[in-house]
Structure formats: structure tokens, C-alpha cells
């Protein structure tokens, strides 16, 4: 599509959408949000970019092939599920690490295997959607 407004607007939009998608991913820790919705938003950014500047430009901007991103995401998700092995707990049990936790109920910065899993989900959704959309765009 050859539209100056769209092309110009896209530059801002893509950055905003990708940033917002990461925000949604991290927000999913305690509030509505998470990897799935984050991945969808992030993919939307690149879909707009592909519509405005063509899939070649979008693929170049992404650097990695979207299929590879999805496969890597699956790997990361499995890794998150496997982390329970560290403490010998049953498979998929969430592992938590509270960085700098204080005595008086201050939890510091909570890091968890749940977040790792969610990052995997984010990448799987992101990669899978872009794979489909790019394939369709290139066919038409």
C-alpha cells in the first residue's frame, strides 16, 4: 500500500505497539494482561508495518524468521515449565525468586518461572501470527 500518512504514522505506531506489548506482558504478572495478549499486540505492530511498507521490509525489521521466533518461544515456555526441577518439585510448579525482599512483607522484585513461561507464550503467539499474516500477504 502506498500511502504517505500510513507510512509516516507506522513508524510511530510500531514502536508504541511493541512497547505496549512488552508492558502488557509484564503487567500480566499481577493484573490483567499476559503473554498471549502481549504477543497479539506486538504482532499487530509488525502487521501494520507489513501493510504500510511491504512484507520484505517487515521481515527485514524483524531480523529473525517469524517461524523461528515461534519455535524459540516454545522452547522458552518448556524451559519455564522445567524450572521446577531445580527444587525437585512436581513439573510446572511455579518457582519464585524475590530479589531484595525485606523482613516486613516487602517482596522486593519478584521473578518467577511463570514469567519465563509467559515470555515463551508471547514469542509463540507473536511468531505464529506473523507467520500466517506474512504468508497470506505474500500470496496475495
Amino acid at each position: 500500500m502506498n500511502s504517505v500518512i500510513l507510512t509516516a504514522g507506522t513508524r510511530v505506531l510500531v514502536a508504541l505497539l511493541v512497547l505496549f506489548s512488552v508492558f502488557m506482558l509484564l503487567r500480566g504478572h499481577n493484573e490483567p494482561g499476559g503473554g498471549f495478549i502481549g504477543g497479539l499486540i506486538g504482532a499487530t505492530g509488525f502487521v501494520i508495518y507489513a501493510i504500510a511498507c511491504g512484507t520484505d521490509a517487515a521481515r527485514a525489521a524483524l531480523r529473525a524468521a517469524p517461524e523461528t521466533v515461534a519455535a524459540a518461544g516454545l522452547g522458552i515456555a518448556i524451559l519455564g515449565a522445567l524450572m521446577a526441577a531445580i527444587t525437585g518439585q512436581p513439573f510446572f510448579t511455579g518457582q519464585w525468586l524475590f530479589l531484595g525482599a525485606g523482613e516486613d512483607g516487602d517482596k522486593g522484585l519478584p521473578l518467577s518461572s511463570v514469567l519465563v513461561f509467559d515470555v515463551g507464550v508471547y514469542l509463540v503467539v507473536f511468531g505464529a501470527i506473523l507467520t500466517l499474516v506474512f504468508a497470506l500477504e505474500e500470496e496475495i
Binding site: T68, A71, I78, A81, L82, P90, F92
Partner: peptide, 21 residues
Amino acid sequence: MSWLLAAPIILPLITAVLAYL
């Protein structure tokens, strides 16, 4: 036991990731 039961699911998935890469 949980790992033994999960292994038949997890192993092919890990293989899938490696094979895809």
C-alpha cells in the same frame, strides 16, 4: 513421578523445537 509422566509429552516437544531450528 510427575517428571516421568510429563516426559513423554515434554521430550517430543523439545525435540520439535530442536528439529525446527
